[in-house]
């Protein structure tokens, strides 16, 4: 689990900012689709994107046909949906494009069209 080791290192080194004013950490530091997915999304959607089920559920991203239209995941990540928090304020256009592209090309998804930061900007 190389990605997780990197994530752990990131979680440990974030302290180096030295600011106890923790509320200022309003932006995700991770860059790139994989790091963003492992640093945020896998908490609920699980490391392999299969989702999870309890009293309620977290939808699977693996082979999810709702990802066919990229506007949908862009909107869900940016605005939130029900128990999914809105991350639009905590991620740049580039970060959102990266994580959407990552999800749409992993976990059994193989969409060919790539989301660009401009697409996110226009959807905000």
């Amino acid at each position: 689990m190389k990605a997780n080791t990197i994530l752990l290192a990131a979680a440990l080194s974030l302290a180096a900012t030295g600011a106890m004013a923790q509320a200022n950490c309003n932006q995700f530091p991770q860059q790139g689709g994989e790091a963003l997915y492992n640093g945020i999304c896998q908490d609920c959607h699980m490391p392999d994107g299969r989702g999870a089920e309890g009293a309620g559920h977290y939808p699977a991203l693996a082979r999810n046909p709702k990802l066919a239209e990229p506007g949908y995941p862009i909107s869900v990540v940016t605005q939130g949906l029900k128990s999914m928090p809105a991350f639009g304020g905590a991620m740049s256009d580039q970060q959102i494009a990266d994580v959407v592209n990552y999800v749409r090309t992993h976990f059994g998804n193989a969409y060919k069209d790539t989301v660009k930061p401009e697409d996110v900007k226009n959807a905000r």
Partner: peptide, 12 residues
């Protein structure tokens, strides 16, 4: 109360 770092920590 650590901003976005909480999500990063939850994801571990």
């Amino acid at each position: 109360r650590s901003g976005m770092r909480v999500y990063n920590f939850e994801a571990l």
